[in-house]
């Protein structure tokens, strides 16, 4: 009975959230980094997770500067071998940036690229930005 109630609650919430005509293109997610948690905004229309407070592309957060300049041209064959996560490899190429591991409540693992001002983006988001930058330039 309790489980049924729980399912009903979750269902109702899902309905309420999905029923909104102009539904949100972003959702909040919490990711655990060791003992602490950071709240990210999953910008679904942009295909990336950015820490809350930096989700506005016009903010002064370093993450947007890096996303605008990240380039696939920085990679070479050694950044690919062994099926390396290309997004993580791109992060390793950025000065003063580092890859950090996080997990969500479902136990799923993800890597984020953390910049000097503390702003962060998921490595998949970094890869996407690099691909988009390359497409704008008409190549790699």
């Amino acid at each position: 009975m309790r489980i049924l109630k729980k399912i009903a609650r979750v269902g109702l919430l899902a309905f309420a959230l999905s029923a909104m005509a102009s539904g949100p293109v972003s959702t909040l997610e919490s990711w655990r980094f060791g003992e602490d948690y950071i709240i990210f905004v999953n910008l679904k229309d942009k295909g990336m997770r950015v820490n809350q407070g930096c989700e506005d592309a016009t903010s002064s957060c370093l993450v947007w500067k890096m996303l605008a300049s990240v380039s696939l041209q920085d990679l070479d064959a050694s950044d690919l071998s062994g099926g390396k996560n290309i997004g993580a490899s791109l992060c390793h190429k950025i000065e003063n940036a580092q890859i950090v591991f996080a997990r969500n409540a479902k136990g799923r693992q993800a890597t984020f690229c953390a910049f000097l001002d503390g702003s962060m983006v998921d490595s998949g988001g970094l890869l996407l930005a690099a691909k988009m930058n390359a497409a704008k330039r008409g190549g790699r």
């Binding site: 919490s30 980094f33 003992e35 602490d36 948690y37 950071i38 709240i39 820490n51 809350q52 407070g53 930096c54 957060c61 370093l62 993450v63 003063n96 940036a97 580092q98 950090v100 984020f112 953390a114 910049f115 000097l116 001002d117 503390g118 702003s119 962060m120």
Partner: peptide
Amino acid sequence: AVTATTTPDPGKQNGRKAPRFRC
């Protein structure tokens, strides 16, 4: 929110851009 710590990890040290939370 957790206040800035003295660890060298940029995400923590300059946490103002990515505040960390604890329960």
